[in-house]
């Protein structure tokens, strides 16, 4: 039994357990750096900022410490844990999301800077039970092993196709170089993107 079968039968997924998805407005300011937060006294001196942002089509209002990243806000406040925290230094691409349709690194994006903007995460790609062509292609081409980099790979690949730059395998490799896969699934990832970009056109 794989985890998604389990979730389907019980009606409970990890995401719903964690707390409800993007529509939830959370008023607790998150200290910067998640678990490695600044000392409490110092954090308390920072005035939280109200951010109104659309996440996967849903309007969300959050009060955030101006030091908090979009990545931590998505994961810790909005329970959207599909976006992964890899290096947290802008080097691995695991945290790739779209802001106003452009692929960016959520670990280097301060949450305060996405006010009035649209964010799309891996959770916002499928239409109901119907996977996005890129997700489908990653499954069909075995474009993953451990899966940790996959949400970032998929978001980056969708962004690249929308930029109009996935016409050859060389171009795909060059324009996907910001997404690292330590399992080394690169050949399958290139094949998946090559398949999906034909469907997406």
């Amino acid at each position: 039994m794989n985890p998604s079968d389990d979730a389907g039968r019980s009606g409970v997924s990890r995401r719903s357990v964690l707390g409800g998805g993007a529509a939830v407005a959370v008023a607790v300011p998150l200290a910067a750096g998640g678990a490695q937060a600044a000392p409490a006294a110092e954090a308390a001196s920072v005035e939280p900022v109200t951010v109104k942002v659309t996440v996967n089509g849903e309007p969300v209002t959050v009060r955030v410490d101006p030091r908090v990243t979009l990545l931590d806000t998505l994961r810790e406040e909005l329970a959207l844990t599909g976006t992964k925290k890899g290096c947290d230094r802008g080097q691995c691409g695991a945290c790739t999301v779209h802001v106003d349709g452009r692929r960016v690194l959520s670990c280097l994006t301060l949450a305060v800077t996405v006010d009035k903007r649209e964010v799309t995460t891996i959770e916002g790609l499928a239409r109901g039970d119907r996977l996005h062509p890129m997700q489908q292609a990653f499954i069909e081409r075995d474009g993953l092993q451990c899966g940790f980099c996959t949400p970032g790979q998929v978001m980056s690949a969708v962004g690249m196709v929308q930029e109009g730059h996935a016409r050859s395998d060389d171009e795909i490799r060059e324009r996907m170089s910001g997404n690292i896969c330590r399992c080394g699934c690169y050949p399958s990832i290139v094949a998946a993107i090559s398949d999906a970009q034909k469907v997406m056109r």
Partner: peptide, 9 residues
């Protein structure tokens, strides 16, 4: 320079 994501930012 950098990666596509970083160049977008």
């Amino acid at each position: 320079s950098a990666s596509a994501q970083l160049r977008n930012m």
